[in-house]
Amino acid sequence: MKKALIIIGSVMLVFVLAVGGYGFYLYKSVQSTIDSDMHSPIERDKSDKREVEVDVDEGQEPLSFLLMGVDAEESSKGRTDTMIVLTVNPNEDSMRMVSIPRDTRTEIIGRGVQDKINHAFAFGGEEMAINTVENYLDIPIDYFLTVNMTGFKDIVDSLGNVTVYNDSAFDQSGYTFEEGELYLNGDEALAFSRMRKQDTRGDLGRNDRQRQVIEGIIKEGASFSSVTKAESILNAIGTNMKTNLTFDEMVDIQSNYKDARHQSETLEISGTGETIDSIWYLMVPEEERQRISSELRAHLQLDESEVASN
């Protein structure tokens, strides 16, 4: 019995499609969906933050992803309502995940202005967003994945539901979310991840809920084995996601990096609000930015490789 293996993250990352007798047909369907509909290469061959491009076929080097949720019907337009950096270390079998608050004030690389980081995608698409995040965190971004809000909902529905833990009851978009463990469908997951105003933590609280939904997607996608879900998942991701990953790279990543999902750690960026020229920004202290950068660099083993090459 053959298996077609695919990592997608949203949102990220691991959809295991057990295809049984449909093996060859479904394998080709997945390949066609990714390479024809989802694949969106960017101009640069590799990050300027790396001397040598990561070889996912070998599966020995840590790598990084930028996951972006776009506040528009299409994943190629709009501002990024969500920006999550995810690093994967196959040597430690571990993942790190950090949400960058959308109002974070930083330099938009390619425009030479200080602005909210979520404006980078609106100004220059994936490439400007990647360059801006790389500059802000001082790490390479190897791969990106964008998903629009419709796609976010459809992906959850294609999986059945996601499990999250809510630490404080609230109402949002016509739904009531009680405290405790919740099982959410697509519409509920979208509402759960969007709430901000009722949370005393503001954007940080919303970022935490978004991470929970993404982790729930990863867990559900990695655990199911029903062939009947394969078609609906392909339909959900085909027109709602864009990535510079090819199908072959996804297969290599799933094969060589999949165990990292079992040990996941979430990092949080903290800052204070400040109004500049009548616009509200999140101002992150330099020492806080450096703290997050150092943790991610250590997880990517960047400083180790630099020492080894000197």
Rank of each mutant, 00 (worst) to 15 (best):
S278F: 10
A260W: 07
Y281L: 06
S278M: 12
V56L: 11
L190G: 07
V88C: 04
E306T: 08
L17I: 05
T80D: 13
M283D: 15
T243Q: 11
E58C: 01
D138Y: 00
T275Y: 10
E43N: 10
I7V: 07
V14D: 12
T246H: 06
V284T: 13
R291I: 01
A4Y: 04
V227E: 14
E188D: 13
G221E: 11
R79D: 13
E274F: 00
M38I: 15
D81L: 01
I109D: 10
M95E: 14
A230D: 13
T163A: 03
V133H: 06
E126M: 05
G238W: 06
L245A: 05
F170R: 05
F65G: 04
I6G: 12
I217C: 03
V11F: 05
S36Y: 03
L302Q: 14
I139A: 10
E73L: 02
D48V: 01
L86Y: 06
T82D: 11
V227G: 02
Q114V: 00
Y165K: 12
W280C: 01
N256Q: 14
V133A: 04
S158P: 14
D103Y: 02
V19P: 14
V19S: 11
I84C: 02
E74Y: 02
G78R: 05
E288F: 00
Y25H: 10
V227Q: 12
G221Y: 04
Q198L: 07
G238N: 09
Y22K: 13
E287Q: 14
D171Q: 07
F24Y: 09
E288P: 15
T200W: 09
A298G: 14
L234Q: 08
A236V: 01
R194W: 03
D103F: 00
T132S: 12
F247G: 09
V54H: 11
D259N: 13
R111C: 05
M149C: 08
R261H: 11
T239V: 01
S94V: 00
Q210F: 01
E249T: 02
Y136V: 03
N185Y: 03
R261L: 12
M95R: 06
L17W: 01
H299C: 09
L190I: 02
L190W: 05
I117Y: 05
E127G: 02
